[in-house]
């Protein structure tokens, strides 16, 4: 039995389940912070959070509204800075999983968070990479969070801010990137993963009430639907923790 839940709550829970106990997690602003806090309070109490602005391994009591928030320092092991987060922890190979958002995500999990249209005078300009390009290249693996609409899931992104599997196959390694790569894309409609070797995308699950065919219709590249299951809904316990402990103010939950 599952209580009613929003798509944002379902995505948060699906993202949280990508975190394994004991892992070191590089969490970005928004849903990833909720997912990591939820994971800590459910199946992965030993996971460690690192924020790019310098908060390392906190015991957060209140949800931060961005990665530089003072709330990322409560009970923290370190209040450091960008040098420690990016150079020693991320580039030094100490981050197991990084979370990324993006306005566009393409067939091979490359992300655009820079601009749509002509780069120099775009139709829409976004915030820019921030640490996303660094996390995409250097974390052990990445989980991407995205709103699933056809125009946001093109064959190729307009601007490749953060590298995924580039053009599939071994193109990521050929670009000189040593490891990592996207493990999953958690969207408003389902969860996409990538085949070993070819890095072709397949629909691992569609969210409850969404058909795999609908996911394909909202996707600008071919998706293998042959193994698509249903995304497991949030448990009552997960929803309770999300609503009453992680984000009782509705900083993010009520905006979606």
């Amino acid at each position: 039995m599952s209580a009613p839940f929003s798509t944002f709550e379902l995505m948060t829970v699906a993202a949280a389940r990508e975190i394994r106990d004991g892992e070191v997690v590089f969490a970005g602003t928004g849903l990833p912070m909720l997912a990591a806090m939820l994971a800590q309070r459910t199946h992965a109490p030993g996971c460690v959070l690192v924020f790019e602005a310098g908060g390392v391994d906190p015991r957060m009591l209140h949800l931060p509204m961005s990665v530089g928030d003072s709330r990322t320092l409560t009970g923290a092991a370190m209040a450091a800075g960008l040098m420690e987060a990016f150079t020693y922890l991320l580039q030094g190979g100490r981050i197991d999983v990084g979370f990324l958002g993006g306005a566009q995500v393409d067939r091979y999990g490359n992300i655009n968070s820079t601009a749509v249209g002509n780069y120099l005078q775009p139709s829409v300009r976004f915030s820019g990479s921030g640490g996303a390009a660094d996390v995409a290249a250097l974390a052990g693996r990445t989980v991407i969070i995205a709103r699933h609409e056809r125009r946001r899931f093109p064959e190729r992104v307009d601007y490749r801010t953060s590298p995924g599997w580039i053009e599939g196959g071994d193109s990521r390694a050929r670009a000189g990137i040593r490891g990592g790569g996207p493990a999953a894309v958690v969207t408003t409609l389902g969860v996409i993963r990538f085949r070993p070797g070819t890095k072709e995308p397949y629909l691992a699950s569609a969210h409850p009430g969404i058909s795999p065919e609908h996911v394909q219709a909202e996707t600008g590249f071919p998706l293998d639907l042959s193994e698509a299951g249903e995304t497991p809904p949030p448990t009552r316990e997960e929803l309770e923790i999300l609503r009453t402990t992680v984000d009782p103010e509705g900083v993010f939950l009520k905006r979606h």
């Binding site: 290249a137 801010t161 193109s171 990521r172 670009a175």
Partner: peptide, 15 residues
């Protein structure tokens, strides 16, 4: 030196 930006338009496109 950094290991970031390989395989991205951060290298390919200039403002």
């Amino acid at each position: 030196p950094v290991r970031s930006m390989l395989g991205t338009d951060l290298l390919e496109k200039e403002g």
